[in-house]
Design a protein around this nucleic acid. Structure first.
Lengths: 341, 341
DNA sequence: TATGAAAATGTAAACGGTTTCATTTTTTGA
DNA sequence: TCAAAAAATGAAACCGTTTACATTTTCATA
């Protein structure tokens, strides 16, 4: 096993200094054509690959973008990864995806890990752990774009889904159907997406002078299982809902399963709506009425903005926020005619 | 903006050499307790973070595992990522995920990119581009574990799903139901998963002396759309199938959609089975009969083996292959009673 | 041909750590 | 108390690049 071949070895063989080799290889600074050829030939022959560690130790550049997500499950996150990867790929960069496992200290570790020379910029999605995230972000040496975080954090750049608007309009849609006892299965405590969706729900009720029954509000964990239990709980009490708004589609799927077991018909007995418009929601019978979240738009805007921060086209210290609008997807689960069949 | 604080600064403040600081911080070599305390306090106060680039420039260690997937869509890949991430996280390492976009030169670039100092080892899934992949892998300076690649490559370490066995048994299952004209929607050309699944299918037919009608073999792209078109094509010809084996569940979903539009009942008119057992397959009505692919087992075995290669517990030059068995998931789509309802 | 400008190349100092080996300090045991 | 052993520390080289600056070579022009 011969030692890793480095720039010095090439310089030695070509009979020049490492500086010249570096210049020849990177096309930075003048090198006589003949010399360049010789160097390139040797590099080729030796199958030389510059050590990225050493390189970025001096250049502070990595051509790598970091993406930190709270977890690596669900197609929602996969879609985010996919969109961003696509864009990163087209600008000849690399993507580094990591999961914070929804823990603040892990966010911190990852931000440090990436920020200290491994990536040129970070896209961070941390809906649960945002109390001190802004501080971490500001401390980071690399530009950071936040995704779906509480946007009351000053001095950060963030993009988010307009959860409030989406929840508000889908709730209004249910109200227009005439439902009186609309339940909500909300998302986990401390999750700002969940909070905003609940706010949209309750303000829509308020606008239409409908009461907010505390017994019709259940908390879930954004997964199928919790939706299943939540619906069972809702149906086992005196005040039964005539419509259920699940704060995301996964929980709505749990509702469908529970409803089938309880022989509750959707939408005849109880209407159901969700949020996210995940792929699986179109497979449900009837198709789930839900809020479309333009994930690709979110990812695209975030990565494009980040790249401009990295190139200093935009001042990274300048704060910015943009909320991306959602759209309503009408299936048969709300009582409308199911056009997907 | 003050300059990044480094080990020298700490040494200066503590009145010791950088060597001592390094020893104190990494618990390598002896340091007087009093000195250690002083150094730790200063490091704490200055919020010192060692530069990982500089560190790994000398140690040649990054505590990072690379994962290269052909693409970043579908829950199948998400599940792979998830399983591996979980294990990586528990060993206090980082995960770096990248997509090769199913292009061989990108695989090469990524392998170089990661292999030259960014990661300690790589898990590579490249079902389409394996002609020269083995060469690349052998050239890599870091240990590499292959996932679902053609296992006829010598001198590599690989884990794969036993596609043949899965396809064989689900085909036999259909045969036992008495279907005579079993069609297959196979996967894309050159994809070795696809090839093995087809081989399992045809050998099962052969074993039971059933003919292999070329008009009942259609090629898809492992996505929903191609399944949709494939089924339409199958039903528009003279020889119509009484059962369809879609080489993966996504294509089976396409079949369901097409069947609904054509008013073809599953399984009364045509039985349908898939492969992968993705989440969505249980949402179909009737539940899809499919082959369960233990992705978590696959990911787990791959990452554990890789870690042992990294720690030199296993000689990385030693080749190894293991095929992981699949299992049958019985839904209602094959003609069995649907127990999921 | 001499001269100055431009082009090509080299030297050496970073970058921020780790580690070998030598040196100093402390501890131990007779 | 003193030598020897053990423990703690420091000096400096090293990892593989890039790059500012100095130096040399080439080339065009007078």
């Amino acid at each position: 096993m011969h030692t890793t071949i480095n720039i010095r070895e090439i310089a030695r063989r070509a009979g020049v200094s490492t500086a010249t080799v570096s210049r020849a290889l990177n096309n930075t600074g003048p090198v006589r054509e003949k010399t360049r050829q010789r160097i390139l030939a040797i590099a080729q022959e030796l199958d030389y690959r510059p050590n990225p560690m050493a390189r970025s130790l001096t250049t502070k550049q990595t051509n790598t973008i970091g993406l930190i997500l709270p977890e690596l499950v669900d197609e929602f996150f996969m879609d985010i990864i996919h969109t961003i990867d696509e864009e990163v790929y087209h600008t000849n960069r690399f993507l580094m995806v990591a999961s914070s496992h929804s823990q603040r200290n892990v966010v911190e570790t990852l931000l440090d890990f990436m920020g200290s020379g491994r990536v040129d910029g970070v896209i961070l999605m941390a809906p649960q752990v945002n109390i001190e995230v802004a501080k971490l972000v500001r401390r980071s040496k690399r530009p950071v774009v936040l995704l779906n975080s509480k946007n009351n954090q000053q001095q950060t750049v963030s993009f988010s889904i307009n959860n409030f608007q989406g929840a508000f309009s889908i709730t209004e849609h249910l109200i227009k159907h005439g439902y009186q006892r609309i339940a909500m299965i909300q998302g986990p405590d401390g999750n700002c997406d969940a909070e905003e969706r609940f706010r949209g729900f309750s303000e829509a009720l308020a606008k239409h002078k409908l009461p907010l029954h505390s017994s019709l509000i259940v908390t879930g964990q954004f997964n199928e299982e919790s939706g299943y239990y939540a619906f069972n709980r809702l149906m086992s009490q005196n005040l039964q809902p005539d419509a259920v708004f699940a704060a995301n589609d996964m929980m709505a799927i749990g509702v469908y399963k529970a409803a089938q077991q309880l022989s509750v018909r959707i939408p005849q007995d109880v209407a159901v709506v969700g949020f996210d418009n995940i792929y699986a929601s179109q497979l449900l019978n009837p198709r789930l009425t839900t809020v479309h979240v333009p994930i690709d738009e979110l990812g695209m805007k975030a990565i494009r903005y980040l790249l401009r921060m990295i190139s200093r086209e935009i001042d990274p210290a300048q704060s910015y926020h943009e909320a991306i609008s959602t759209g309503l997807i009408i299936g048969g689960s709300c009582g409308c005619q199911d056009l997907s069949r």
